[in-house]
Amino acid sequence: MLWQTGKKDMLDLALGLMLFISALLSLHSKDTMKSGVFFIIFGFLSGLIWVRLEAPDVALVEIILGSAITGLLIFKLVKGSKQKDLKAFTFTRLWAGFISFLILIFMLFHLTTIERQDRIASLVFENLHKSGVDSAVNAVLLNFRGYDTLLEVGVITLAIFGLLSLGLKREAYYWDNPLLKGFSRLSLPFIVFFSLYITYLGTFSVGGAFQGGALLAGGLVLFALAGQALPLKASIIYIFTMAGLGVFSLIGLLYALLGYGFLTYPLELSTISIMIIELSIWISTAFLLYTAYSGKL
């Protein structure tokens, strides 16, 4: 049974309640801007719930990507839209409510009847020494189920292509202030270094390429908010943006041509392959998310 109560009961109750309240306020707020702020708070509280569920990798992704980066995109969206509140047609709302209710019943049913099964987890831990990394999460992400990650990088690249091809007029918001300029210039090198450190940490502890890339995207957004342009040539930015999908699929094809099979790393080369792939995912996620924020490549 999954009713095992943890030791910090007060915290869990408060977390759940606040999550529910922030979701409710986000959906029923009279102003779209406030809904955006409530959504950011909701994302952070979900990250805390992942922390309580002892999944710090997912907590890192939720807090960085689901709360902060999504918040930045929501700000630009809300500022550019003319609609003042979140009203939708009554039929749409009834239908959405019905589907949510069905999902709730489904979840409650499984919550009461599920038992712990450890089959797949034990398989992962048995084969961990063959995967080239020491962290189970990253072994699954980049070696055992590497094809999923390749398709995810493909999906995010295609999404950014879709966004760019819409050709919307994107306003550039910035503030020409020496304090902000100085702070962004001081913090960008530190953010580059720290995001690289988080990416490297993913091979043996909590971290990963997507989290590092999103952190770097945040640093780039701060740099752009001060009114500064990135000191990189446009061709370099193009290369960085496409590096994730390109390098990942090239490595997969290379191993296919060498006779091992698509995306099947040989045992000695698995660590170095995973590190090259992680670096490429890092830089391309950063620039893809920055392009999603700024609207032009």
Binding site: L60, A68, F194, G207
Partner: peptide
Amino acid sequence: NLALGFALLAGVVGVAFAII
């Protein structure tokens, strides 16, 4: 690391809020 990453991004979100 989580706290450091979140502090960085919370700064960006706060400044972006004010400016945008």
